[in-house]
Design a protein around this nucleic acid. Structure first.
Lengths: 144, 144
DNA sequence: CTTAGTGCAAAACCTTTGCAACTCT
DNA sequence: AGAGTTGCAAAGGTTTTGCACTAAG
């Protein structure tokens, strides 16, 4: 994943954003937890262990920046805070979320299978669709 | 829509919830705005005009109650507050949301077309799916 | 150097809660 | 009458902001 890290740093530099240690640290926290859906507080908790001087506001500002750049995607799973994951729009590597209404666990489903629906909707609605987000609610294996 | 109003009132009464004037007023506000996606504050603004004595907390509590009873569905469109619309789970009358990333407008797309995908995912994942929610992000006609 | 970025604390929001008063059933 | 409901105000939790200081380019 080192490759991706450098790529993202370059992306920041290209757009005249400064590549600060704090931004690197926060980005690294995400790369170390690719399959989690971290909230700002989660990230803060992770980075504080090794870098206790980082402020929560910096975490919020960095996450917002990375989301603006479409590097991260802000999500909402109904627990009252925003959660972030790597945006996979460009990579066309979409996945869906399965949210257990009993225990709250969020798992991912790795197929997309929505391309034809997307073009159909785009044609009918006049929207130029650039992304989608599909959540399923139900009971996970444990909770059934 | 009068019919639906009475139906919902009966549903409340059946479950031993009291059919108070406040609950009726809030429900009516929703029936008068079926195609909006009202936030608690939106509802509060609407009902306060004719019933200034209603408290915001009552609005929140009523919306939560109606969502618990699956009469309303709590949604999130990324603007920092919850929004509600009539739940159409039981009627199998699903629709998707098209969210314009430029102007924020939310429109609805009335076909579901997701049944086969849902059963496929249920089979593969072991989840017992009871509902889904699909959002498309893009540019609306005006903003393109 | 210069301007963007940081840390801290305070403020701003949205939402929930405690409690006394009230009112459906 | 009695349990559930309300309104108000206060508290809670998340996110944003102001500001002096710091550091990346």
């Amino acid at each position: 994943m080192q490759q991706t890290f450098d790529e993202i740093c370059s992306k920041l530099a290209e757009k005249e954003y400064k590549v600060t240690p704090q931004r690197k640290i926060i980005l690294k926290a995400f790369l170390d937890n690719v399959d989690s859906h971290l909230s700002a507080e989660d990230v803060y908790g992770i980075v504080k262990i090794q870098h206790p001087e980082i402020g929560l506001a910096t975490v919020y500002r960095t996450l917002e920046l990375l989301a603006d750049l479409s590097i991260l995607q802000k999500m909402n799973f109904g627990d009252g805070r925003s959660r972030f994951e790597f945006s996979e729009t460009e990579a066309h590597h979409h996945h869906h979320h399965l949210i257990c209404v009993s225990c709250g666990k969020v798992t991912e489903f790795e197929d997309d299978l929505l391309e034809s629906l997307e073009t159909a909707i785009a044609k009918k609605s006049g929207f130029k669709i650039i992304d989608h987000q599909l959540k399923f609610y139900g009971f996970c294996g444990k909770c059934q």
